[in-house]
């Protein structure tokens, strides 16, 4: 934005401190999640084309390249979730009366608990 001062820094500023590297990895998760969402919409598109087309697509997705890509996307998506659940109690502290709910308890109630419930439900649907 014009009229504002921005300190000049190198393009590789995020390599200067471990905290900056962690910050950048967290931000980069969004590229992988976005790429997966495109693949998910493609998968839904195959479902719209009919069960036979989707079955053919699911066979293609069992290839090594797709498995590796999904593995990388999964690691990044899990990292997004973990860092998100860490940030939520800081951004939205919960107060019970005057007392702030401890961050680990809030992370379980607002993050890990719902996350594991959703994941268990979806996995149960897929494997039953």
């Amino acid at each position: 934005m014009s009229g504002q001062y921005h300190r000049s820094h190198s393009r590789a500023w995020f390599l200067e401190r471990p905290g900056y590297i962690r910050f950048m990895i967290r931000e980069l998760t969004s590229f992988f999640v976005a790429a997966y969402l495109v693949v998910l919409i493609l998968t839904l598109g195959r479902a719209a084309a009919g069960e036979a087309a989707l079955a053919e697509w699911l066979q293609a997705l069992s290839g090594t390249g797709w498995m590796v890509a999904h593995g990388v996307a999964l690691v990044m998506a899990v990292w997004h979730a973990v860092t998100w659940f860490k940030a939520v109690p800081q951004a939205m502290p919960i107060f019970i009366g005057e007392k702030k709910l401890d961050a680990p308890v809030a992370a379980v109630l607002m993050g890990y608990g719902p996350w594991l419930t959703v994941t268990a439900g979806v996995v149960w649907w897929a494997v039953r």
Binding site: L40, A77, V122
Partner: peptide
């Protein structure tokens, strides 16, 4: 994304 995407990747991937 945090709640659903890992489960979706596990399933469709």
């Amino acid at each position: 994304a945090a709640l659903f995407v890992p489960a979706f990747i596990l399933t469709t991937g």
